[in-house]
């Protein structure tokens, strides 16, 4: 009994896969955006040692890093629903991935901020800039540039980990593939297909970020 790999089957499944891809992209990009915002906020709170809030941020980072993502997803989807705070599949997914990615980005960005030379802080203060302005105009523009590669890492993980959301029934790429497999048992075709699709979108994301980095690094290059 030999398995006959069928390209026409993949062709037939393409509309379903495209719908799944769209959902994967949507949930991932929204989550990446929020994870950068959450990460930036937490990193600033910790870098500037804001009382109470920086401890909360630190506890949040440790909590997210020390529990499995799947458990977090289940907690947010089922746990919150049982408390009467059900968010539905999409927003539960966004919340879980954003909080997860935010924790990692918090550490990435904290590293970036600590790479900003101390002298720039003194220079900014000696010019009478308020701490918030120093943060916004000097520290973050420099620190975020430094940690773009590590933020890309985390963003790629967020994108790939969106496949966990099939566990709560969100019709993203992996869910669609699993569904087709359950109906037609064409396992090889489906998993090769979605593997290839994940590969392509991650490569595209990486290429895009590399371009962004080129642009942002321009002022630092000597002519």
């Amino acid at each position: 009994m030999t398995y006959q790999f069928s390209f026409p089957y993949i062709w037939g499944a393409t509309p379903d896969l495209m719908q799944g891809l769209w959902m994967t992209l949507l949930v991932s990009l929204v989550s990446i955006l929020f994870s950068v915002l959450i990460g930036t906020l937490c990193a600033c709170l910790r870098t500037f040692r804001v009382p109470v809030l920086s401890q909360i941020a630190s506890a949040y980072v440790h909590f997210m890093r020390s529990t499995p993502l799947l458990v977090q997803i289940y907690f947010i989807f089922y746990g919150l629903a049982s408390l009467g705070l059900g968010l539905g599949g999409f927003w539960s997914g966004v919340l879980a991935l954003s909080l997860w990615g935010g924790a990692y980005n918090s550490e990435n960005i904290r590293g970036g901020l600590s790479a900003v030379p101390h002298g720039l802080r003194e220079a900014a203060f000696s010019l009478g800039l308020k701490p918030m302005l120093y943060l916004r105009l000097v520290a973050l523009p420099i620190g975020l540039r430094v940690c773009i590669p590590s933020m890309l890492n985390t963003s790629v993980s967020v994108l790939k980990n969106s496949s966990y959301l099939q566990a709560i029934g969100l019709a993203e790429l992996t869910f669609v593939a699993m569904n087709r497999v359950a109906m037609d048992f064409r396992t090889l075709e489906m998993f090769v297909s979605i593997g290839a699709i994940y590969l392509v979108i991650v490569l595209a994301l990486s290429a895009g970020v590399r371009q962004l980095e080129q642009v942002l690094q321009a002022p630092f290059r000597t002519a």
Binding site: P117, G119, L120, E122, A123, A124, S126, L127, G128, L129, L133, L137, V138, P141, I142, R145, P219, F220
Partner: peptide
Amino acid sequence: MVFQNYALFPHLDVMRNITLAPCRA
């Protein structure tokens, strides 16, 4: 104040380095 290591803001051009603080203040 002028520092030993200049401490110019490396992500800004010369003009923005000079105008940043007076504008913001």
